[in-house]
């Protein structure tokens, strides 16, 4: 059995062409516009929450992230992506589960936040800024059409990046429950983009590495 698995390459698991995938993203973006702006406003609320020690602000951030995961699951994974990738029925279930876990996380935001000047908190905010502001510009360096831009709340990758940043920045418990799905998604997405030979594959890899690096930082 090991010998058989050794015959597979990354490309063997890719069941659609890059052209089909990025056209799907472009059509999705065009259909949603200007709804992306709503999520940008929501993301700003998340960022604001990380800048305060307020429990309500952290709870609002968790709720915003929960809505973002639900929206990605429903609108992108289930209604769009699953038309070319049957595995996305499992992806949808995982995203729905993460949405529920983030709602539960509201209960866990009553613990004291990390100190505002801690390296981990500043790093988490950096990861959020990366997910919010850098991700939409990835097509420019990957040589794709700007219409294939990925933004928080509508596409999984930046949503996972912002979520990981927010969790490591200001949630001090239950991380073992909340981190696996975003991290696994980033790994899946990075491998998919790598199989498509898309330059943007480095982004989810960076998100994974940054998250683990921040988790190792004590303060």
């Amino acid at each position: 059995m090991m010998a058989e698995w050794a015959t597979y390459t990354l490309a063997d698991f890719l069941m659609f062409s890059p052209r089909v995938y990025f056209r799907l993203v472009e059509r999705y973006n065009q259909g949603l516009w200007p709804f992306q702006l709503v999520f940008i406003a929501g993301a700003l609320a998340v960022l604001f929450a990380t800048a305060t020690d307020g429990r309500r602000a952290r709870a609002a951030a968790m709720a915003t992230l929960s809505v973002a995961w639900f929206f990605c699951a429903w609108q992108f994974l289930w209604l769009r992506y699953s038309t070319i990738n049957w595995a996305m029925s499992y992806g949808t279930a995982a995203f729905m589960l993460q949405s529920g876990l983030l709602l539960l996380a509201i209960l866990w935001t009553d613990r004291a936040a990390l100190p505002a000047n801690s390296l981990r908190r500043r790093g988490g905010i950096g990861l959020m800024v990366f997910g919010l502001l850098a991700y939409p510009f990835l097509p420019l360096i990957a040589g794709r059409a700007p219409a294939s831009a990925e933004s928080f709340g509508t596409m999984p990758d930046p949503t996972a990046a912002v979520t990981l940043g927010a969790l490591v920045a200001f949630l001090s418990q239950k991380l073992w429950l909340l981190l696996p799905i975003p991290l696994l998604w980033c790994a899946f997405s990075a491998l998919t983009l790598l199989a498509m030979e898309d330059f943007g594959a480095w982004a989810p890899f960076v998100v994974i590495l940054t998250t683990f690096a921040l988790l190792l930082v004590r303060r």
């Binding site: 069941m15 659609f16 062409s17 089909v20 056209r23 070319i84």
Partner: peptide, 13 residues
Amino acid sequence: TWITFNVGDDSVL
């Protein structure tokens, strides 16, 4: 038809 015909509901493709 592997990969080539997996175009989802993209009417152009």
